[in-house]
């Protein structure tokens, strides 16, 4: 790990200004992704700005929904009664992620910015368009078992966000509050926060250089109340998703009134599926309907040599999640 200077910021403006003035700086909260990548020399920063003293804490119900301070830790949010009771998919996505140790460390804001586990990205001996734009993507013809089948490009097929939380947040229409060096805040729906790789896979989100995530707000809906996160992986615990599904259904009088569907582990970004939702709304819940929705969700899939299994796996994951939440 290269050496760096360290600042503990007391005020948001101090943090965002320091970041604006130093293109090589990074914010640090939990550090679980950042220090991992710095040890691999995948990221090199000459300054780390510690944001843990900033007042972006708290888990509270507001008129816009549940507001979670970006510095809250995964473990605290995952087990918080307001989250468990009103947003089961969010709670499950947090508690099925990583390990107890990492969940104690990792912040919500940092989790949303977690970076890909693509082996070529993480190994500086290989070219990688995300790490070094223009050098190429060996994953396309290489070991792509863990990589994406939806939303990829000729430049990158990584599951850019490999985690779980954002899959649930994308399904439930969460909104991120960002603050810049001018002290100005803006709200960005998380469905518009991530960018598809296209020809610029190095640009992963709409976050500006001087912007800090300060909160996540999740609207309280009937579908969020009746939601779940199902994660399929190579071992029972402590592994990234091969495929996952965050779903929420509002069923009234035997008919689906509202449906929220997102997939993890298969998309170049946390993958909301309006196609699947369209197949569900207005129908009576049944396995056939769920199957049709799952097929619609994966219709545009572009599997590669080693990850073709993910098409069927993601469909089955989605069908199972919908069946469980409708039961």
């Amino acid at each position: 790990m290269n050496n760096f200077s360290y600042i503990q910021a007391d005020k948001a403006k101090e943090a965002t200004t320091a970041k604006r003035d130093d293109k090589s700086a990074a914010f640090i909260a939990g550090g679980t992704t950042l220090l991992d990548l710095m040890k691999l020399n995948v990221e090199n920063h000459d300054q780390l700005i510690d944001v843990n003293m900033l007042p972006f804490r708290g888990i509270e119900m507001t008129k816009n929904g549940l507001r979670i301070g970006a510095l809250e830790r995964m473990s605290d949010v995952g087990e918080h009664p307001l989250v468990v009771q009103n947003f089961p998919a969010v709670s499950q996505s947090l508690l099925l992620a990583a390990s107890a140790q990492l969940r104690n460390m990792a912040s919500i804001g940092g989790n949303v910015l977690q970076r890909t586990r693509c082996g070529y990205f993480r190994d500086t001996a290989f070219p990688c368009n995300k790490r070094e734009p223009g050098t190429g993507c060996p994953a396309i013809e290489g070991d792509n078992r863990n990589l994406a089948i939806l939303g990829t490009s000729d430049a990158c097929i990584a599951t850019s966000y490999p985690g779980d939380l954002s899959v649930a947040l994308v399904a439930l229409d969460a909104v991120l509050t960002l603050e810049n060096a001018k002290g100005k805040q803006r709200e960005v729906p998380i469905t518009k926060f991530y960018l598809l790789p296209g020809s610029t896979p190095q640009k992963e989100t709409v976050l500006e250089d001087d912007e800090l995530i300060v909160a996540v707000t999740i609207p309280q809906t009937a579908a969020a109340q009746k939601s779940m996160y199902l994660k399929v992986r190579e071992r029972t615990s402590y592994a990234y998703a091969l495929a996952s599904a965050a779903v929420g259904l509002e069923v009234q009088g035997g008919v689906i009134r509202a449906a929220k569907v997102a997939l993890g582990g298969v998309g170049a970004q946390p993958w909301r599926s309006p196609e699947a939702e369209k197949m569900l709304v207005g129908k009576a819940p049944s396995e056939a309907v769920f199957r049709a929705a799952a097929e619609a969700a994966l219709r545009g899939a572009k599997p590669r040599e080693h990850n073709a299994f993910k098409v069927e796996m993601a469909q089955n994951t989605l069908v199972r999640a919908l069946s469980e939440v409708a039961a």
Binding site: Y6, I28, D36, K39, S99, A100, L102, N104, M105
Partner: peptide, 25 residues
């Protein structure tokens, strides 16, 4: 790299991976 847990210690009573924690923090 925070994957094995051999470095686990308690910080303010909570278990963490000390290999991914900066001493200064």
């Amino acid at each position: 790299h925070g994957q094995c847990g051999a470095c686990t210690v308690l910080v303010d009573g909570k278990r963490v991976n000390s290999c991914l924690t900066l001493a200064v923090m």
